[in-house]
């Protein structure tokens, strides 16, 4: 089975990429600490470096172990109740059986739009979150199709890399934005020369970094990853039409309904099954592959 081997490869690649990402983020804070200490006063070098090391350690460890919680909290998701969302549980249990994966924890987020995402660090610690809109508008087969797609992200370890990217890099870009803004507002006050210089340097580093970080988040999702999840999702349901119909419903949704609720952070966007920002143009930098193309591929299966 050549297909099987390629999935194993993808799992391996995702694990390596996740590790590299952690190393890069860790190194980034160390280097930042180094720059700050050099500019400020070399005699503070050790204190600042110790602080930077502890901070970056805590940052990546928390990012690794709590990424799913952070992702869920950022969209204000609540645990799904077994009595209220029975269909969701049935779909998840069915897909867990057919894929042989452990049952993920289920969450629901308040949104009219049809969407879902999976998160976690490995299949044993995985979560799947559906929007209330998806639960309302999708029928059983469609729900199972979307569920299978999310389960394949779990099986392929896409969730580890994608969530880490969203959380670690997303936080860097948030810190950058806060920093840039505070720099702007505090510009009028008098400060000592050195302090000013540090703020300038850090500000410049972040100013360069912020757009790069946002771009990296977009690259975390590759079309290949989505197509692979569609394909192996069908392996779980044996019913490509289910996911195809769900994607059609997503496509035909009115965009206006979600304009009001732009609560999803940009860093989180790649995690979802369809782009929560619904960019009209499919370009090089769009985070999700074209829905029409996905439907076409599913219907050809």
């Amino acid at each position: 089975m050549p297909q099987h081997i390629s999935f194993d490869d993808q799992i391996q690649r995702n694990k390596i990429k996740s590790f590299l990402l952690i190393v890069i983020i860790f190194a980034f804070f160390i280097v930042l600490g180094y720059i700050v200490s050099m500019v400020l006063d070399p005699s503070y070098f050790f204190i600042i470096m110790i602080f930077a090391t502890i901070f970056s350690l805590v940052y990546v460890v928390a990012g690794y172990y709590k990424s799913d919680k952070i992702a869920l909290a950022s969209v204000k998701a609540k645990p799904a109740s077994r009595t209220e969302h029975r269909m969701l549980y049935h779909a998840a249990e069915g897909m867990a059986i057919s894929s042989g994966l452990p049952m993920p924890k289920l969450y629901v987020m308040e949104s009219e739009e049809i969407n879902a995402f999976a998160s976690g660090r490995d299949p044993k610690h995985s979560v799947i979150c559906f929007t209330t809109g998806a639960l309302k508008k999708l029928d059983k087969q469609e729900l199972e199709g979307v569920m299978a797609h999310e389960m394949s992200h779990i099986a392929n370890y896409d969730i580890r890399f994608m969530t880490l990217t969203a959380v670690l890099i997303g936080m860097v870009s948030i810190i950058a934005q806060i920093f840039l803004r505070s720099l702007w507002f505090s510009g009028g006050r008098n400060r000592e020369g050195k302090e000013q210089a540090i703020l300038m340097v850090v500000g410049i580093v972040f100013a360069i970094l912020a757009p790069i970080a946002t771009q990296l988040v977009s690259f975390a999702i590759s079309r290949k990853r989505e197509y692979a999840a569609d394909a192996s999702g069908v392996k779980f349901t044996r019913y490509p039409q289910g996911l195809a119909n769900a994607l059609k419903k997503i496509k035909n949704e009115s965009v206006s309904s979600l304009d009001k609720e732009h609560r999803v952070s940009k860093a989180m966007a790649p995690l979802f099954i369809s782009d929560p920002f619904k960019r009209k143009v499919q370009g090089l930098f769009s985070t999700h592959p074209d829905v029409n193309d996905r439907i076409r591929k599913l219907e050809a299966m």
Binding site: H90, E93, G94, M95, I97, S98, S99, G100, F236, R238
Partner: peptide, 10 residues
Amino acid sequence: EDKVAYARQH
């Protein structure tokens, strides 16, 4: 019934 079918498939 669905789960039986899926278990069989797996």
